[in-house]
Amino acid sequence: MYQNILVINLMQIGDLMLTTPVLGALRQAYPQAQLTLLADTRWRELVEENPHLDACLFMDKKGADKGLAKLWQFIHKVRALKFDLVINLHRNERASAVAAFSGAKYIVGYSKPLFSLLFDKTMQNPSIAHHIGWGPGGVFPPHHYVPGWEHQVHAHLNVLRKFLGIEPEDDGLEMALSEENQQTADKLWQEHFTEEDKVIAFNIGASWETKRWPDNYFAKCADKLLEQGYKIAFFGGPMDLTIVQKCISQMQYKDSEALHIFTGKVSLAVLAGLLRRCCLFLTTDSGPMHIGVAMNLPVITMFGASPVPGFYPYDGRSVLLKSPEKCHPCGIHQCPRTGAENLACMKNIPMAAVMHFAEELLAKFQGQPAYKLPPHKGDYQCRVIDLSKGEF
């Protein structure tokens, strides 16, 4: 029986959110253990209130803990905590090094080569894409791109099955808020909306250009929903301000009092507190998409470059529109196609399809806010609309 457990995921918002089912499963399997999570300090609000955790460690990868010498100092800090089980849930060099040199009695999960020699058990992460061979000169596009074939949550839970011999319960994505952050979100909501308002959230930014649905499509959807009496709330981080402003400039109702802009103005925790009061989320494949799922908010998302099996919204009520382009999924951050064919994967996801499913979900759930919707444990396979097969 393990008494002191460390789970590692030092990646981005979405990756960290997709780790949360593991925390609940470990708490159920080892109720008396000290359970700690190591994450990037930028995303501490996502996990620091998680009810399954006893402690968090945060690494400032881009600041105080940057560089090889600082990494080694951080590893010494981890070693001093004398973990008897370390589970690494992302195969990158930094996380692999922390796990490998943690001094734990049992080290399992994903690992880069060489570091894996110090793990007790490793496995391939079947949710992550692989590039086999490269184009001329070793540049993109890859000769052969193999997308992940299993959802990241399932892959992580299989680590527990395979290496710990437990049958983990899957409670889906989770995010808890501090009382202070919830109160901040509630106050902000009251300043912008009434209790009767039906608010649809928009997140139009994404880390890759190839994950972004055209901003003029979002603009037209926002106009149509405003015409139907809904309120619109734009979210996103400071890096999304320019594209949000461009999107809104193309709207017919850009000066409407029913249009509210929170882009760059709220923390991740306050974002979560606001999303739980919305009734639908139109979003790209992004970190906020997974936060919306954790807040019980039905999602409509569009996947162009992104592989569907590994990262679809983990919610059976949500809808994913899959690009009809033959090059989907490419996993490329910038589209190599030129002219009218540039970003065709996203351009060819029609606005009419997004509006059809938006109106379907709004009718189904009667525009209720996410926090009033019933739980749906075990129902995590979203509805995938394959536009290449004429499913719309």
Rank of each mutant, 00 (worst) to 15 (best):
S306R: 07
L321G: 05
G236K: 08
S286N: 09
L188S: 13
W72S: 15
D386C: 12
L271H: 07
V354N: 03
A99W: 02
V384D: 09
K82C: 00
C345A: 09
L241N: 11
R94A: 13
F281L: 14
M123D: 13
M351R: 14
P313L: 01
H52A: 15
V7A: 00
N181H: 09
A55F: 00
A344W: 07
L53A: 01
W72F: 12
P298M: 02
E150I: 11
E150Y: 09
L321F: 03
A25W: 08
I107T: 04
G24R: 02
E227Y: 10
A64Y: 07
A80W: 01
I87W: 01
K254R: 15
K372Y: 10
E169N: 06
T122Y: 08
S318I: 10
P298E: 04
A233R: 10
A219K: 10
L37N: 02
H192P: 06
C345T: 02
N342Y: 13
P51Y: 04
P147R: 00
T301L: 07
N50E: 03
G138T: 03
R91P: 10
L320Y: 09
F119N: 07
R27V: 03
R94H: 03
F218D: 11
A185N: 03
I87N: 00
G14C: 08
E391V: 05
Q12A: 12
F163M: 11
Q73I: 13
D60F: 07
S306T: 15
W189Y: 12
E325S: 14
A176G: 06
C278Y: 05
E360P: 01
W213G: 13
A100K: 04
G109Y: 01
A55Q: 03
L320H: 12
V319G: 04
V98P: 05
Q252V: 07
D54R: 00
Q152H: 08
L297W: 04
E49C: 15
L89M: 09
F365A: 13
L118P: 08
E209L: 12
H260M: 14
M11W: 12
A258G: 13
Q3M: 06
T41G: 07
Q34D: 10
A80V: 02
H76G: 12
G103Q: 00
D285W: 01
N50A: 08
V22R: 03
G310F: 11
L157E: 02
V293N: 02
C335R: 10
G292D: 01
P214K: 14
D285A: 09
N216A: 09
A97M: 05
G137S: 02
L241M: 06
S388M: 10
F83S: 01
A344F: 06
Y230Q: 05
F311Q: 04
L362Y: 03
L321R: 13
F392S: 15
P324I: 10
I232L: 06
